[in-house]
Amino acid sequence: MDSISLGSQVVQYIFTGLTVGAIYALVALGFNIIYNVTEVINFAQGEFVVWGGLILAVLAESLGIPLFFSFFISVGLVSLVGTVIYWTGIRPLRQPTILTMIMATIAISIILKGLAMFIWGKDPYAVQPFVEAPPVTLWGAYIQAQTFWVLGISVALVVALTLFYQHTLTGKAMRACADNPGAAGLVGISSGRMILFSFALSAALGAVGGAIITPITLMEYDRGAMLALKGFGAAILGGLGNFYGAVAAGFLLGLLESFATGFISSSYKDAIALIVLLGVLFARPQGLMGSSLQGDE
């Protein structure tokens, strides 16, 4: 016989929602980084998360490299994968219209998924938590220590990204490319390099998401599509291209799913993301916080 008060349940749902939401937010941010420079939706975004988690699992669990180093090597390698994708899949396109680029990213996501299956097989992989600690009890709810890592690292990344875009030359150059590629080219900014950079950056972001979530959820080769879908939902919900919108929408989506599971039924959990996505597209296509496309940043 076991029971838990409604208040404790709500606290539990909030933390569950925020943990999953943080990953949606990171995926949504990845979409935005590439979208802002190229106006392309990179559908391989979810695969970066998968690869980040799987590479971490191999480095930390199979090879026994300390988790701290494994984390950075994994993020670095996935970021390299992002640049390779740009060089082999996006740059060689003869007529790089937005539509052909989006098609290319779908092809790339299928290839990455297939490669992951060949390399790691179909079984899930586990990684130990970053710090072994007992769960924290908060108003009767149990919060895993890893949850605080997920939330902390996600928030730190958002702050770092903001500083990068506001205060560094490369960040400003990327924003310039997003605003007006023609004018950016005239003042000597290579848009090709900025696109390359955006792929590397969004791949790294996805890899961080995969690395921090794998100790909680395990990771296997075919989880990318669902993550990409949810992250895309968050990006649209927040307003495509709007960074703060993406973060807020990612967390909101995670909370919605968690509460829907708790108070309605878990059968409808995955439908929530799609219903929200459709609702936003019907009622407010520019997203909750406005899209960068409308120029109201």
Partner: peptide, 8 residues
């Protein structure tokens, strides 16, 4: 990937 809500 997470069943804590169901378990709660």
């Amino acid at each position: 990937s997470d069943l804590t809500a169901q378990l709660t």
